[in-house]
């Protein structure tokens, strides 16, 4: 009995701690009138979503965020998979070094490398370019992809490849029949993390994406960026981002094996 109460308390505390700040965001998003002196909004409604839709911000930001993220996943995968294959299946000098170096772009604060990128992009005339933003998102996206996929390659028994080859399978067949099914969970995990990373990336997008590329986080920044804090529209935009974020967590729980999640959250 005592144990049960204890578990219940702990679970409630965790759930409440996570959910409460999010609920307040929802309060703001659906409030039409909320005086600073009162505890709850005195008028509820969809006004802010309408305002954002009519202003064209919401549509544009959703379009940008949700087209950039898949592209980042795609290109990160194209770059990471060959390297991850080598690192995961072959042994060679400097292999550890490669693994460790790939960590660094995740650890260096984006604002630090960002000022260099800002200057380079200015020189190249790439400020405010769509593909420029895809590229900067890949800086943080690739490490997630690489780590997940390399872990997947590593978990494959090398004997399998050999067996397949000795049984007369061609290289392509080996690839398709042996590697693809075994590596795809890793690619899936990597894709989820990379997608989430791109969706949430903010500092670099702010620096090199302005003024045209206003992804959802940048758009939110416009509403909370110091000079003007407008909680209601900022919250309405946040709701649009929070819902896919929660879906991503559920997806991850459902489909991604725990050994890949260790690569998560390095952001």
């Amino acid at each position: 009995m005592k144990r049960k109460t204890w578990i219940f308390l702990m679970s409630t505390l965790i759930i409440f701690g996570v959910v409460f700040p999010i609920i307040v965001i929802f309060f703001w998003a659906f409030s039409e009138r909320w005086y600073g002196t009162s505890l709850l909004p005195s008028k509820w409604g969809l006004k802010w979503f309408k305002v954002l839709l009519e202003g064209g911000d919401l549509g544009k930001s959703i379009y940008l965020s949700f087209t950039i993220a898949p592209l980042v996943v795609l290109f990160s995968a194209l770059i990471s998979i060959p390297a991850a294959y080598v690192v995961g299946t072959k042994s060679f000098k400097g292999k550890r070094l490669v693994e460790n170096l790939v960590l660094i772009p995740l650890i260096v604060p984006p604002i630090a490398s960002g000022i260099g990128l800002l200057s380079m992009y200015t020189n190249w005339g790439m400020i405010g370019s769509y593909w420029g933003v895809v590229l900067v998102h890949m800086i943080g996206g690739i490490p997630y992809m690489f780590r997940s996929v390399a872990a997947a390659f590593e978990s494959i028994d090398p004997a399998l490849e050999e067996a397949s080859r000795t049984l007369g399978a061609t290289r392509l067949q080996t690839m398709l029949k042996v590697y693809v099914p075994l590596v795809s969970p890793g690619v899936l995990a990597g894709s989820i993390f990379t997608f989430a990373w791109s969706l949430n990336e903010f500092v670099l997008t702010l620096l090199v994406g302005l003024p045209n590329i206003t992804t959802l986080p940048v758009q939110i920044f416009h509403y909370v960026g110091g000079y003007y804090i407008a909680p209601a529209p900022a919250s309405a935009l946040s709701v649009v981002l929070i819902i896919p974020s929660i879906l991503i967590v559920l997806l991850m729980e459902r489909f991604v094996k725990i050994e890949y999640t260790a690569g998560a959250g390095l952001k």
Binding site: G36, T37, G226, Y227, Y228, I229
Partner: peptide, 13 residues
């Protein structure tokens, strides 16, 4: 930290 933050303090009385 900004006009809005000052306004917030005012609005909350």
């Amino acid at each position: 930290a900004g006009n809005s933050a000052a306004m917030e303090l005012f609005a909350r009385g």
